[in-house]
């Protein structure tokens, strides 16, 4: 019986690849949007403007304090009630972008705040505008401490994208869930699901670790 199911599973491999494509699409789009929004959010969170800091802080707390599953349900089921109809795919991308952006905001903000204050003061004394300070003094130094956790965040992003299967996006996890109804070998089916995620996440985790070692060496040299 096991062999029969194994052959069945091999035959449904194209279905799994479709799911893999969907996971990469959802995670990839959210990665790009989330990183852009997160950088702006982080700059605001580390700025001297108190209202901006507090608003961004409250948003981050709200997103960090609630489970991603609940956030997806809120976006998918409540927004139609106020006139915004969304398909499952855009709803998933919006929810995941929102989640990623809030975490990247914290990473970027703490990276910026870790740059010694004297650097900014020297830049101000040299007559650099706020934008120029950020562009040439603060961000190039902050990026060292931002990059490793940023890549780590991308790993979480890929893993969190599995939750969008709950609103019917046919990603790897959903494919596994559908397949297991037909091939009742849970260990085998979800072993394959896990393998596909592993193939994406494991290199990213190692990249994050590599960057961390690399950046530590680079900053001690300074």
């Amino acid at each position: 019986m096991w062999g029969f199911y194994f052959n069945e599973l091999i035959r449904s491999l194209p279905f799994f690849l479709k799911g893999l494509y969907m996971t990469v699409a959802v995670a990839g789009l959210s990665l790009v949007f989330g990183t852009i929004i997160g950088f702006f959010g982080g700059i605001m969170r580390a700025s001297r403007n108190k209202p901006a800091r507090m608003i961004v802080g409250a948003w981050v707390d709200l997103i960090r304090g609630t489970p991603f599953l609940v956030q997806i349900f809120v976006i998918f089921f409540i927004l139609p009630g106020i006139g915004i109809e969304l398909e499952a795919f855009p709803a998933a991308v919006i929810a995941l972008t929102n989640l990623t952006a809030s975490f990247i905001t914290e990473i970027v903000a703490s990276g910026i705040l870790a740059v010694p204050k004297g650097q900014r003061e020297a830049a101000t004394a040299s007559g650099l505008s706020n934008y120029l300070q950020l562009r040439f003094i603060v961000l190039p130094q902050a990026i060292r401490s931002i990059l490793p956790p940023l890549v780590g965040q991308y790993v979480l992003l890929v893993k969190d994208s599995s939750v969008v299967s709950a609103i019917g996006v046919v990603d790897i996890t959903r494919v596994g869930w559908l397949t297991v109804q037909r091939i009742p070998e849970g260990l085998m089916v979800f072993g394959l699901v896990g393998l596909l995620y592993f193939a994406i996440c494991y290199p990213l985790i190692n990249l994050s670790g590599f960057l961390e070692r690399r950046m530590t060496v680079a900053s001690t040299k300074l």
């Binding site: 790993v155 890929v158 893993k159 969190d160 994208s161 599995s162 939750v163 299967s165 790897i172 996890t173 596994g176 869930w177 297991v180 849970g186 260990l187 979800f190 072993g191 699901v193 896990g194 995620y197 592993f198 996440c201 494991y202 985790i205």
Partner: peptide, 10 residues
Amino acid sequence: STPLLAQLYF
């Protein structure tokens, strides 16, 4: 390297 949801279903 794998999502909790996949582990849960596993």
